[in-house]
Amino acid sequence: MVSYIWPLAIIVLSNIFYQVCAKGIPSSMDPFASMTITYFVGTICSAILYFVVSRNGNLLAEYGKTNWAPALLGLCIVGLEVGFIYAYKVGWSVSTLTIVQSAFVAGALLFVGWLLYHEAISLSKVIGIVICLIGLYFINK
């Protein structure tokens, strides 16, 4: 059970700090300039953690195992981060933006999961999306 929970804890804690940091980018700073610092720190941190976790690992050999996904993920992450930074610059609040985007993402991923991965769309999932949409109504009221 612990192996199931710790990744979620990392995601939740990282997302909380992520949102605080994204909102904390100075409004006068270009978001893409801030991203160069972000990715520099991320690259260094990832390299250090790779060698700590994969003792005697060969990073170049790992690169040889790649496919299209890491490169596209990099583009997606830039879109996510810049989108959040710009949303905060135009006035979205931390407490509202994440809920609104999560509800839309959950709805879209319901269909992506069905279409690409043949995941079942159950009545309870549809009801959950409807509840999310009702929640969006009240959050934005």
Rank of each mutant, 00 (worst) to 15 (best):
V100W: 08
D30A: 09
W68Q: 04
S27H: 14
K125R: 14
L109P: 00
S46F: 08
Y86P: 00
L73I: 07
G24H: 10
I5M: 14
S34H: 12
A9V: 12
G83L: 07
K65V: 05
Q101H: 12
P31R: 08
K89D: 05
S3H: 10
N67H: 12
Q19G: 12
N67A: 12
A71S: 15
I44T: 13
I129S: 00
K125F: 08
V53R: 06
T36S: 11
V130D: 01
S14N: 13
T43K: 02
G91F: 03
R55H: 02
V112H: 03
G128L: 01
V78D: 09
T96N: 12
T38Q: 13
V82F: 08
L116G: 00
S46L: 14
P7C: 08
N67R: 09
K125S: 13
D30V: 10
S34Q: 12
L123R: 03
P31S: 10
S122Q: 02
I85S: 00
S93F: 09
A108M: 15
S46Q: 06
W68G: 02
V82S: 03
F32D: 04
S27E: 11
G91R: 01
F51I: 08
F104T: 03
G57F: 00
A69E: 12
Y63R: 07
A120K: 14
E81T: 15
L116T: 01
I134A: 15
Y137A: 06
V94T: 09
Y88E: 00
P70E: 06
I25E: 01
A71G: 15
F32I: 08
W6L: 15
M35S: 05
I85M: 07
Q101P: 04
T96D: 11
L59G: 08
I127W: 02
V130C: 11
V105E: 11
G42I: 12
P70L: 03
V100N: 07
V94C: 01
V105P: 06
F51P: 03
L13F: 13
N56D: 14
L72A: 13
S95Q: 09
I5L: 15
I99S: 10
A47E: 01
S34I: 05
G107R: 02
S34D: 13
Y18A: 11
T98F: 15
N58K: 06
L133I: 11
W92N: 06
I129E: 01
I99D: 01
T36H: 05
Y50N: 01
F40C: 15
G107E: 02
N140S: 14
G42L: 15
E62F: 05
S95W: 07
T98R: 02
I25S: 05
P7M: 15
S34G: 14
F51Y: 15
V94S: 05
A106Q: 08
N140T: 14
V78S: 13
A33L: 09
G83A: 12
G74D: 06
G42A: 10
V41Q: 04
G83H: 07
F104N: 09
N67V: 04
P26T: 09
V130L: 11
P7G: 10
G42C: 08
C45N: 10
V100K: 02
F138M: 11
W68V: 10
V126H: 00
I129W: 00
Y137Q: 07
I16H: 05
C132A: 08
W68P: 02
V41K: 00
I99N: 10
G42Y: 08
E62I: 06
T43N: 03
W92S: 07
L80Q: 10
Q101N: 14
G42S: 10
N140Y: 04
N67S: 13
S3K: 14
